[in-house]
Design a protein around this nucleic acid. Structure first.
Lengths: 251, 251
DNA sequence: CGCACTATTGAGTATAGTCAACCGGTGTGG
DNA sequence: CCACACCGGTTGACTATACTCAATAGTGCG
């Protein structure tokens, strides 16, 4: 059950000491973030409105449910979860956010945060004041269209998860989750087959509508079947086709 | 099990014979649709880009999976479902859309339709060419912000459904679904306690991640418990508090 | 009038949840 | 520095919820 070659944590993004003002131009996340296909001049304009970077230590809130909505947050390094807290205090996880992804889009409609955002590890975000972003979108059509695509992508992603939750069995859910994570790491330039889970079994279960015991049993079963190797949070995908087959088997 | 006073179908929106050019200004759905808080002049501008209305007969596609994305569609009258078709031909429902709601937002990111849209009854939509809408959003800040809110609202709605699917038992899912429908009808000026379901038990089940038998049994149980009255597609909510209690009981 | 579709209900079953015991790190305080 | 407690994870035994398969019936459309 132990991995042959346990690995140290893979850093999500190299730390940068560049000035805040040069944020976007110097950022390795350009392709994932807002400034896709912009001219140097346009990126400068965007840089000018990004007021600050902000860091959040592991386990702390970036924002809480009910906070007034003012900014979007682009994850620069680290990872976050968004959580819904019910009256009795139990929390349900609505999403995981990796570097290059945008937090806070849901709050535009309600003008308050609908969920809390908690750092899964020490993290850093770029703060994007939304009213100023809207101004800029009116001036730069390419940025406007890209922003609409980012919001739309969120809708697609959520609907994909709805299909997963509504139609798939536990093993297919977890399998799809792992494949999705692998893709996200790959698109950030990291290994698509070996990575460190940023979240607990309980958090995965909460996100996928399963109990932590079911998640744990499935990890064990997948490992037995030779689909993955897993040691605590270190995960290696051995047989991606096999995982896909589990997702596709619409039973 | 039979309703005391079965009712004829309630029309979703009064038919209008106004010219296409006067669409938004004359439309009863203004509050739900795009033109919130605009001046007469701005509404005129919006009217000018809405190229046409289009009708879809019950059971026919408004668009299909894979169609190139060009337009958004505002439901003017009637109702739609959006469906994901798997290789084996089975369909999963990702959403229901009533009058005043916008179809096609998910396709902005992929530039193709991710799901098919099928009319649940004879329906009519306003066709909104997206590139022209983006132009207009750059000119009218109030419209721009409202459009962002509409996209954001979709994200919130989807995340709410994710929470429902991930965390709730069958009875809580159906209960939440009925309450949500009631609210949507109410916001359109129709009764919040009596309405006609536009969809089959199977379609409700597909949307909620349940089988049609489970949905049917729950309707029967809710009726026995005095929470609702139901006769085929005619539904009356008798005890809304009771329904809410089922949703809130986080078991 | 009859067929197809939608819905209801019952019986048996499988999947995932619950409760519980246990293990191995990690971190803290005596 | 060691002991202990705590957290995250694994595994087992039992159970409940919702699914599957099946029979039946009511509606509506051609």
């Amino acid at each position: 059950m132990r991995m042959t070659q346990p690995r140290p944590t893979i850093p999500i993004a190299p730390a940068s000491n560049a000035l805040v003002r040069a944020a976007c131009k110097a950022c390795s996340l350009q392709e994932l973030c807002l400034p896709v296909g912009l001219s140097d001049d346009e990126i400068d304009q965007l840089d000018r409105i990004i007021s600050a970077r902000q860091s959040a230590r592991r386990g702390t809130y970036l924002y809480r449910i009910g906070d007034p909505f003012r900014n979007l947050y682009a994850v620069r390094s680290g990872a976050f979860k968004t959580v819904d807290i019910s009256e009795d205090g139990s929390e349900k996880i609505t999403g995981f956010y990796l570097s290059g992804e945008i937090l806070g889009l849901d709050a535009i409609s309600t003008e308050r945060q609908n969920f809390g955002a908690i750092a899964l590890e020490d993290s850093e975000v770029c703060v994007v004041p939304f009213p100023r972003l809207e101004e800029l979108l009116r001036e730069i059509p390419a940025l406007q269209h890209h922003f609409h695509k980012i919001m739309s992508r969120d809708i697609v992603r959520d609907q994909g998860l709805m299909l997963l939750l509504a139609g798939m069995k536990a093993d297919a859910r977890l399998s799809a989750f792992l494949i999705g994570l692998a893709q996200r790491y790959a698109s950030r330039g990291y290994s698509a087959t070996r990575f460190r889970l940023r979240m607990t079994r309980e958090e995965i279960g909460s996100y996928l509508g399963l109990t932590l015991e079911t998640v744990s049993r499935l990890f064990s079963r997948f490992a037995e079947e030779g689909l993955i190797r897993v040691d605590r949070r270190e995960l290696e995908i051995v047989d991606q086709k096999g995982l896909r087959a589990i997702v596709d088997q619409r039973d």
